[in-house]
C-alpha cells in the first residue's frame, strides 16, 4: 500500500501511522452527545472515507487521506491543516 504525502510524494504505507476517521472536533461547549458521536460513532462506509494518517517516519505531517475501504484506492490526500478539523471556538 502506498500513500501520497503532500510534502514527500508517494511513500510506503509502513512510514505512516493511521489514527482513524477524519472528523472535526466538536465546537467548544458541545455536549456529551456530540462528543459521544465524535469519538465513538462511525459512518464506517464501504466506499470512500476520509481518514487521518501521520507521516511518522517521514516529514511528520498529519494528512487527511480519502481512501476507498473496499478497493483500497487512494483517491486524494491533503494536509490535515487544511481540513478544518478544529471545531468552532
Amino acid at each position: 500500500m502506498r500513500i501520497t504525502c503532500p510534502n514527500c510524494g508517494e511513500r510506503d504505507r509502513r512510514e505512516f501511522y493511521v489514527k482513524g476517521a477524519a472528523l472535526a472536533r466538536p465546537d467548544v461547549g458541545a455536549g456529551l452527545d456530540e462528543w459521544h458521536d465524535h469519538l465513538h460513532l462511525r459512518d464506517n462506509p464501504a466506499s470512500e472515507t476520509k481518514e487521518l494518517w501521520y507521516h511518522e517516519m517521514g516529514c511528520g505531517a498529519w494528512i487527511e487521506v480519502c481512501r476507498n475501504t473496499v478497493s483500497h484506492e487512494v483517491v486524494s490526500t491533503r494536509l490535515a491543516s487544511g481540513a478544518e478539523l478544529g471545531g468552532k471556538r
Partner: peptide, 9 residues
C-alpha cells in the same frame, strides 16, 4: 486502516 476488503498488505 479501515477496510472491508478481507485482505491486507
Amino acid at each position: 486502516y479501515s477496510s472491508y476488503a478481507a485482505r491486507g498488505n
